[in-house]
């Protein structure tokens, strides 16, 4: 073959080593090692943890994708590093390399393999999205979600009827510059700034906004849903363990986007019920002034907005919650 006869580095009696086999062996060892590391060592610690069903599903997806990506990445890197070391230009060698224009077998194999990997990933991702404990992926699915947990088949009236542990807890997330508030329609529709959810019960987040686009990201719950004005964006999760929750706004929403965060917690069923009942009584005055529960709100229709904000402890100048002169710490 022209490729072999024109390679001057190979001496007369010297046999050209089997580069393909060498690369394959190095790849096999490293790919196996990295996959074992990913699956057993790194895997359990991958974000976003396992506090809730949706988070669990995401963690599993990230783990599987890493296990599939690592061999590909290792292959390309080894191929490059091997080539750069073995086939580097030697001083004094001014000849051109072998004229290899292509290799049909290699090309067909590569295209087939990458296509198979991609289709597998697609099948896996779709299955994970609609099946299993992480179904729905905790992401905002709009007003008519396709993935529903047990109990979500109830009518709206049944869902909004007073709380029971056998159906999903509905929490409305209302975003505004630059706070999230949480409304509990199954507890008389009180509104609070603290996110409390019960353990081992499906939670339905109905996310909306009254001004610009925000994004409700409850990191440990594995929930992320855009808060669009005039839109009810629904996301599901099931908290599995007790723990604290960090909520951040994940869509740039103006000056104080960076300060739009708060905290919450996953409580036991009984602790949650007593918290919710106490909050319902505590906020009774405010709840009376709020507009009736709805999936979306028009801010201009909340007549006593100022009073409500003060009662909720959200004070500030100019319609915002922070003084207008940019304090160093909000």
């Amino acid at each position: 073959m022209a490729a072999e006869t024109s390679a001057p580095a190979t001496g007369a009696g010297e046999r050209e080593p089997n580069h393909g086999m060498r690369i394959f062996i190095i790849w096999l060892v490293l790919a196996l090692a990295s996959d074992l590391l990913i699956w057993f060592v790194l895997g359990p610690h991958l974000p976003p943890g396992d506090l809730a069903s949706a988070a669990n599903g995401q963690q599993f997806d990230i783990k599987v994708m890493s296990a599939m990506a690592a061999p590909v990445m290792v292959f390309v890197l080894i191929q490059f590093i091997y080539s750069l070391i073995v086939w580097r230009h030697r001083e004094g060698d001014e000849e051109d390399g072998p004229p290899i224009h292509g290799n049909t077998r290699v090309q067909v194999t590569w295209i087939t393999l990458t296509t198979v990997i991609v289709l597998c990933l697609f099948g896996f991702g779709t299955y994970e999205l609609v099946n299993g404990p992480g179904a729905g992926a905790g992401s905002g699915e709009g007003p008519s979600p396709i993935v529903n947990p047990p109990g979500a088949e109830l009518t709206v009236a049944q869902q909004m009827a007073p709380y029971s542990a056998s159906k999903p807890l509905v929490i409305q997330v209302i975003a505004q510059q630059w706070r999230f508030t949480y409304r509990y329609p199954q507890f008389g529709g009180f509104e609070t700034t603290y996110l409390a959810v019960p353990q081992n019960q499906w939670v339905e987040f109905d996310v909306t906004s009254i001004d610009v686009i925000h994004d409700f990201w409850a990191y440990q719950l594995g929930v992320k849903a855009d808060a669009d004005p005039g839109v009810n964006n629904v996301a599901y999760t099931k908290p599995l363990q007790l723990g604290s929750i960090t909520v951040r706004c994940d869509e740039l929403c103006g000056l104080w986007h960076g300060a739009m965060y708060d905290y919450g917690s996953v409580m036991t069923q009984s602790a949650f019920q007593s918290w919710a009942t106490a909050s319902q009584a505590h906020f009774a005055d405010v709840t009376k002034m709020l507009p009736p529960y709805a999936t979306t709100y028009d801010p201009t229709e909340i007549k006593q907005l100022g009073t409500v904000l003060v009662k909720l402890g959200l004070t500030g100048a100019g319609g915002g919650y922070y003084p207008p002169n940019d304090p160093s710490q909000p």
Binding site: A3, A7, H19, V76, Q79, F80, S83, L84, W87, R88, H89, R90, D93, E95, D96, G97, P98, I100, G102, N103, V106
Partner: peptide
């Protein structure tokens, strides 16, 4: 990768 194969880099 194919272009680097057996090249004079």
């Amino acid at each position: 990768m194919g272009t680097l194969w057996k090249a004079k880099i």
